[in-house]
């Protein structure tokens, strides 16, 4: 319970979105350092497609175009899409994904503030289902030949053999699932060029960049502590428990936290104020659910990373989570089960 006087914080959608974009910059910087400038091309492509789609949809829906286009929410979606798609994906993949996110996942559900599903994650899931091969071609760490990357993005003839490498999560699971494998997690992590000190090679630094940006968002009070803490703690706990029980089969918490989309998910995706839970207890449940599902999908599922699917699955649960976790009004008795009107 807060006491008066309340100091109003002049938060506009635009201000929040600009700070979210700024918070992504450390991660992007690490991304460029390890994987080349292709990601900047993808970000530009996605942003242009998002703004165009946003303007067209707002016009069709008869809403003020200028006000909503300049609020920056479409750009945040676009950046998240670009950061979750492979940087050497062909240009149309990220454009199609962005159009899907803005047109279908955002505006067909009623636009900013109404979408039940995280648009960026909806786009990622649709694209990885439709184009599993293109969505799993990632550059090897340290490959920063911008010309070759541009050729991969825009060229008709994609010669990728020299560039492509499976992601850390992907190569770990592939080896672990070989029939009659004798490989152990420690052995795999120590072997390949894919793996770094604690996570994926290069990826651990990108994740650290997201962590720094996310911490800054927390300090700026753009996001609350509930979602990142619940997400990272749950992922670390589950991964840690299984890793203790079966160290040969299950990688430990640091690997899970510093590979794939875990950090991006904890600070930038699960914290989406629209498609996520809104009550404090609800946020804890929501984020813990995403982390648990992410770990399950990574460990036993059919796709290399689980953050996107886990987010969509928990998005479906948000209405009931919010309903069941309504805080009681001050001075009133706690409603049993929270199922009052």
């Amino acid at each position: 319970m807060n006491n008066s006087p309340f100091i109003r914080k002049p938060a506009t959608v635009r201000g929040v979105m600009l700070q979210v974009l700024a918070a992504l910059l450390p991660g992007i910087a690490a991304y460029v350092w390890f994987f080349g400038a292709a990601i900047l091309v993808q970000i530009a492509l996605a942003s242009a497609a998002a703004l165009a789609a946003e303007a067209v949809m707002l016009r069709l829906r008869g809403r003020p175009v200028g006000m909503f286009v300049s609020d920056g929410s479409a750009v945040v979606t676009a950046w998240l899409i670009a950061l979750t798609f492979p940087p050497i994906a062909p240009w149309w993949l990220v454009v199609a994904g962005t159009l899907l996110a803005i047109v279908v996942a955002k505006h067909l559900y009623g636009g900013l503030g109404q979408n039940p599903f995280n648009p960026a994650m909806a786009a990622f899931c649709a694209m990885i289902v439709a184009y599993p091969q293109l969505m799993t071609q990632w550059p090897a760490a340290g490959f920063t030949d911008f010309g070759a990357e541009l050729q991969a993005i825009f060229g008709a003839d994609r010669r990728l053999d020299a560039i492509v490498m499976a992601t850390p999560l992907d190569s770990l699971r592939t080896v672990l699932r070989l029939p009659d494998t004798r490989a152990t997690v420690a052995g795999i992590l120590g072997s390949g060029a894919t793996f770094g000190n604690i996570g994926g090679k290069g990826w651990e630094w990108v994740a650290l960049g997201y962590f720094v940006g996310g911490a800054w968002l927390l300090w700026r009070r753009i996001i609350t502590w509930h979602v990142p803490v619940a997400f990272l703690a749950t992922l670390a706990l589950v991964a840690g428990a299984f890793s203790l029980g079966g160290p040969d089969k299950f990688p430990g918490p640091t690997f899970h936290l510093f590979t794939g989309g875990a950090m991006l998910g904890a600070f930038f995706i699960a914290t989406d104020p629209v498609s996520g839970a809104t009550t404090p207890r609800g946020k804890l449940i929501f984020a813990a659910g995403i982390a648990l599902l992410t770990w399950i999908i990574r460990s036993f599922g059919g796709y290399p990373d689980g953050v996107a699917f886990a987010t969509l699955l928990m998005n479906i649960c948000v209405p009931i989570i919010d309903m069941k976790t309504q805080p009681s009004v001050f001075g009133h008795k706690r409603q049993s089960g929270g199922d009052a009107p």
């Binding site: 149309w92 199609a96 649709a126 289902v129 439709a130 008709a156």
Partner: peptide, 20 residues
């Protein structure tokens, strides 16, 4: 000829979205 195909449209989600 080069159209990559959008598999989601053939899968159940595509049916729901397009019918909608």
């Amino acid at each position: 000829e080069g159209y990559p195909g959008f598999l989601v449209a053939v899968l159940p989600p595509g049916a729901f979205i397009l019918l909608g």
